[in-house]
């Protein structure tokens, strides 16, 4: 399993509590990069700007990454552009939502 796959697999533990779908299958994770040894950077979004679960979900993502022994430095950036659309969901995510 590549390092990126490990990260995404771990992030699947973070669920959106309204939809009960994890952030990866919801398509909220836009990018995962490794800027230097022991560092990970995630660019992510939420389904709605000003989503009330804002802090909860981003801190959940941060915690899941800090927990991995491969990383000593974690950066989570929340962006609204490009805006999330349902097309960003994985087939698994779409299936869970009944589509």
């Amino acid at each position: 399993m590549s390092l990126k796959e490990t990260v995404l697999s771990n992030l699947k533990r973070v669920m959106d509590p309204e939809l009960n779908i994890n952030v990866v299958d919801l398509g909220l994770i836009y990018d995962v990069t490794f800027p230097e040894e022991g560092a990970v950077s995630v660019i992510m979004t939420l389904t709605t700007p000003g989503c009330p679960l804002h802090d909860s979900i981003t801190s959940g993502v941060r915690y899941c990454l800090e927990e991995l022994e491969e990383f000593s430095k974690v950066d989570v950036e929340l962006v609204w552009e490009p805006a999330w659309t349902p097309e960003k969901m994985t087939p698994d995510g779409l299936r869970q939502i009944g589509r």
């Binding site: 669920m15 509590p17 309204e18 009960n20 802090d55 909860s56 979900i57 801190s59 959940g60 915690y63």
Partner: peptide, 15 residues
């Protein structure tokens, strides 16, 4: 109740 533990342990969904 749960926003601080999301990702750390299983939390209930809103439903």
């Amino acid at each position: 109740k749960y926003s601080k533990v999301i990702g750390k342990k299983d939390v209930p969904a809103l439903k």
